[in-house]
Design a protein around this nucleic acid. Structure first.
Lengths: 152, 152
DNA sequence: ACTGATTCTTACGTGAACGTTAGCTTTGTC
DNA sequence: GACAAAGCTAACGTTCACGTAAGAATCAGT
């Protein structure tokens, strides 16, 4: 019922990072795996923790944002996580649920906006580069013709 | 005929950076403005230098690559620049030209490949996020219906 | 030629994101 | 319960990409 539990080294291998990175992310508040840990014991991670870490690394890699920006960006997951916790604890206040869900939706929207603007910039640059490549290829063709005509 | 010449401060304002950054880029070999500079004189930049710097900053911002990777990626511009120099100097060896142009085309292609893969990753993540947003919105709707029916 | 603004080189400082080391404790296995 | 493997905290080290400061030189306008 509780599912598998990963140790920090396993998690590191699964996400292709290092234990140090994971501890650091916890240190700056990107992961809260340490919160419900009994004092004097090792860290343990759930499947959800794994997914969150994967998304963190992906966003970071793709958008090149700082870890601080990332913390704000990923607030949606935290909200959903806290909701799930309350859910599991049996606290089912619909007003509170609405609030959390709306917050999550907002965060997801801002993530989407960022992704879209980034994609647009990339496509613009792609178009410019394609034009540049056409120019280079044109000049290569011109060069070939000239060689042929001078050789003929 | 030689066109305008910018001083480092002007260039910095035009590209929204600082003189320090420009000197640093020259220091690590991203810009070669210092090459043809008379000893004991200030740096001076051409329109082409401006364009190259703009592209550098753009690629860096968009792809989040390190300055070292950027140097390899932008080798196309260097090749084209060297070709133009030879051109202006009257050296018009078609074999050499072909080589340089083909090299430039190759570099542009690798830039394009990187941009495309990046765009694909972004679109994949976008799709996943949109699905997630739909799930959140569905739950919000469910929540609203429940409130209405319990109030009715 | 003077002068104020800009630039020069050299060198040390800085923040982010970890790497590495040291000494100790916890965990899985026989 | 012994023992190796992995994890823990605390602290210092490192790299990248510049920032900042100092003192001298150069440049643009008069």
């Amino acid at each position: 019922m509780t599912g598998e539990r990963y140790r920090i080294g396993d998690l590191a291998k699964l996400t292709d990072t290092t234990p140090r990175t994971i501890r650091y992310y916890e240190e700056i508040g990107l992961l809260d795996s340490g919160k419900r840990r009994e004092p004097g014991t090792h860290r343990t991670f759930s499947e959800e923790d794994l997914e969150r870490l994967r998304e963190l690394l992906r966003m970071r890699e793709l958008l090149g944002v700082s870890l601080e920006e990332l913390r704000d960006l990923m607030a949606a997951e935290s909200a959903r996580a806290s909701l799930r916790q309350e859910w599991n604890a049996g606290i089912e206040d619909p007003v509170r649920q609405r609030k959390v869900l709306e917050q999550a939706a907002g965060h997801i929207d801002s993530q989407l906006a960022l992704l879209r603007s980034r994609r647009d910039e990339i496509e613009k640059l792609t178009g410019e580069l394609e034009a540049k490549r056409r120019r280079v290829r044109d000049r290569l063709r011109t060069l070939k013709r000239r060689r042929v005509s001078s050789a003929g």
